[in-house]
Nucleic acid binder design. Structure first.
Lengths: 287, 287
DNA sequence: GCCGCAATGAAACTATGATTACAAAATCGA
DNA sequence: TCGATTTTGTAATCATAGTTTCATTGCGGC
């Protein structure tokens, strides 16, 4: 039982209570610095009471806070005096070459590249477009990107009305086109291998006078010819498949921007949604 | 006058008295650790009295020992914190405070924290579990996480057979339980607000002898009580909603790991899938 | 050698930190 | 839904850390 405090924290993590977990999280957040101040500051930072801190460090096996703190200091000292410990990886418990670290490296690279290529003006313009209830919004995704399109749709639905999801994976999508009017916005996710149906959809939407927002990969879907706005995201990963994390990030950031632009409305709609959830909970109980 | 304590110590070194120099030497001896204990221990170690310590740190420009100590902590933190954090701005064309940069900052932080909490051994164990076709795999997600669960399901389907998706948002999920047998694996995504139906599902799956893999947020879904393996991901973001990017990253990394573990099979299945796509493309043309 | 000044630590004091006891709140199980 | 149990924070208590006061010591000049 002479593990590091970090190891002990993880080991007992499951047996901890809510407040204690919250505290454990705060300690691990910038370990081990946060544990070096007074018990009061640590408690404040974790938004728990000081007795909770005492109780938790005792669960960890220390006699009290000072002993815990002394242990932290020792660990820290060992860490600094040992220059070999570079802390390069993302998971410091896994070796550098572990897939967790390799994959994360690649994804962070993707994010960096993606952000570097996005024009903030375009981003803002698209956010404004999606926030404006004057036109309808249609969201379409392909086989892989279906999850993303669904995710965007789910959130936009809360923010505004007149949002429709078009899954191009089924063959019912042409029906959705009937509702598209000039000026409407069509958001399309399309990464390799680019699908025929999605291209067709973009083409027909453009023909009907819709404005198209394309979220694609770095090689650019053929749809970009029809697109009013186009964002290319890096999707490379050490895997047989591509990584859509960067696209997810862009989508979430868009959602946040749209929500910010239409906050009054969003708040009202969220409130109404909450109420409906509360009502339906009665039904859930019978399931 | 905002040098480091070390610089200040050297600067005023000549103007110090005998006992103070002795103290300064002790502090510099293993800087900055020795300054992080109590004033008493530092005084003892330097073989001077505590008032001497107070007087000297005041000569250094601090109001008192606590302020001096806080300065040391800050220096130390800056020293050990990961340089990747220090990046100013992800999109160099957008201002620092643009949502694109703020959101990405938060997400990168989430990823780091998430990775720090994941036990590589657990990760490997889950990957092996999901790669093994001996047992069936069931994947369930809630309202927000439905997209993630669908994404995982889509990919696992290519890698292996006997994978089933359970959308807990519909009320048909209890039917899926009929197929669960002891030893089967149930992957559940659950973030706040934790849903009753998902909890119920986990409970019933556990009762049927299934092994549960939980992907949850840092506050931990109540399901963790039933879970064989549990991964907590940071989901905080400057938005009215949470960010599931870290969960997406974990999911993709899992997919990559499973695919690697069962590469022969995956390759065959991917090939067969390609063929089917080629055939069905004929149908698409008529759409 | 004596005086005076600066330096220093002992001790008293104050403030803050850590712990404990207990009651309120939340959660759980029937 | 209600009672029992656990969790959690408030407030009181205790301990230690930090500061200040002041007497003692050491040192240089007269």
């Amino acid at each position: 039982m002479d593990d590091t405090a970090q190891q002990r924290l993880k080991k007992v993590h499951d047996t901890l209570t809510r407040a204690e977990r919250q505290l454990a999280g705060a300690i691990l957040e910038n370990y081990p610095m946060s544990g070096l101040g007074s018990i009061t500051r640590l408690a404040e930072k974790a938004e728990v009471s000081t007795p909770t801190v005492v109780r938790m460090v005792q669960k960890l096996g220390y006699t009290g806070f000072p002993e815990f703190q002394a242990a932290l200091r020792e660990e820290l000292e060992a860490q600094i005096s040992n220059p070999i410990d570079k802390r390069d990886g993302w998971s410091n418990t896994a070796p550098e070459e572990h897939l967790l670290n390799r994959f994360t490296d690649a994804v962070i690279g993707n994010i960096r590249q993606t952000l570097a290529h996005i024009d903030p003006a375009d981003f803002d313009a698209v956010a404004a477009l999606l926030a404006d209830e004057a036109q309808s919004v249609f969201i379409a995704g392909g086989r892989i990107t279906h999850a993303l399109s669904e995710y965007l749709h789910l959130h936009l639905q809360v923010i505004r009305g007149r949002v429709q999801h078009i899954p191009t994976t089924s063959n019912a999508w042409p029906h959705a086109l009937l509702d598209i009017e000039p000026g409407d916005v069509v958001v399309i996710y399309d990464i390799r291998r680019y699908e025929n149906s999605t291209l067709k959809l973009a083409e027909m939407a453009a023909a009907r006078g819709a404005r198209t927002v394309l979220v694609t990969d770095q090689w650019q879907s053929p749809i970009s010819r029809f697109a009013t706005y186009s964002f290319s995201c890096r999707i490379e990963a050490p895997s047989a498949w591509d990584s859509t994390v960067a696209m997810m990030l862009l989508s979430e950031t868009l959602i946040a921007a749209v929500q910010e632009a239409a906050w009054e409305r969003t708040r009202d709609r969220m409130g109404a949604l909450e109420e409906m959830f509360d009502e339906t909970r009665v039904f859930r109980k019978f399931v």
